[in-house]
Computed example of a mutant assay.
Amino acid sequence: MNPQTIRELIEQGLPGARADVQGDDGVHFEATVVSDAFRGKLPLARHRLVYATLGTRMGGEIHALQLKTLTPEESGAAG
């Protein structure tokens, strides 16, 4: 698994989302995801939305994924 593939999976699963994924050992990754879908949701619900885009890869091909989830307003990218 590589950061580019994870980014694509997240962005396909959350239409309109922007993801920046880092990780160079192939199993541990960090991602910042900006999406309107996070509006009004608590952090755990936001993380579940992202994990859902990755399905069974979580815990398998992706051993760990550290997430930062933001709305466009929270990221400063609004407007």
Rank of each mutant, 00 (worst) to 15 (best):
M1N: 03
N2H: 11
P3N: 12
P3Q: 12
T5V: 08
T5L: 12
I6W: 01
R7D: 06
R7I: 00
R7M: 08
R7A: 12
R7S: 14
E8D: 12
E8S: 13
L9T: 03
L9G: 07
I10H: 04
I10P: 01
E11F: 08
Q12V: 07
Q12T: 12
Q12G: 02
G13F: 05
G13P: 09
G13E: 05
L14R: 00
L14M: 06
L14V: 04
G16K: 06
A17Y: 00
A17P: 02
A17N: 01
A17L: 03
A19V: 09
D20T: 15
D20L: 15
D20C: 09
V21Y: 10
V21C: 13
Q22H: 12
Q22E: 14
G23R: 13
D24Q: 15
D24L: 15
D24M: 14
D24N: 15
D25C: 14
G26R: 10
V27N: 10
H28D: 13
F29E: 08
F29C: 09
F29H: 09
F29I: 13
E30G: 14
E30P: 01
A31M: 09
T32E: 13
V33Y: 01
V33Q: 03
V34A: 11
V34F: 09
S35K: 07
S35Y: 04
D36I: 02
F38M: 06
G40E: 09
K41N: 02
K41R: 13
P43G: 07
P43R: 11
L44D: 08
L44V: 15
L44I: 15
A45R: 12
A45V: 10
R46I: 07
R48W: 01
V50N: 03
V50S: 07
V50I: 10
Y51L: 08
Y51N: 15
A52I: 01
A52W: 01
A52M: 06
L54V: 07
G55S: 07
T56Y: 06
R57Q: 14
M58Q: 01
M58C: 04
G59L: 02
G59W: 05
G59Q: 02
G60S: 14
G60W: 05
G60N: 14
E61Y: 01
E61M: 03
I62F: 10
I62Q: 02
I62M: 06
H63P: 06
A64Q: 03
L65K: 00
L65Q: 01
Q66E: 09
L67E: 03
L67G: 01
L67C: 05
K68H: 05
T69P: 01
T69M: 06
T69D: 00
T69R: 01
T69A: 08
L70Y: 10
L70G: 02
L70E: 12
T71G: 08
P72V: 05
P72H: 11
P72G: 12
E73H: 12
S75V: 04
S75Q: 12
G76A: 13
A77F: 03
A78V: 13
A78S: 11
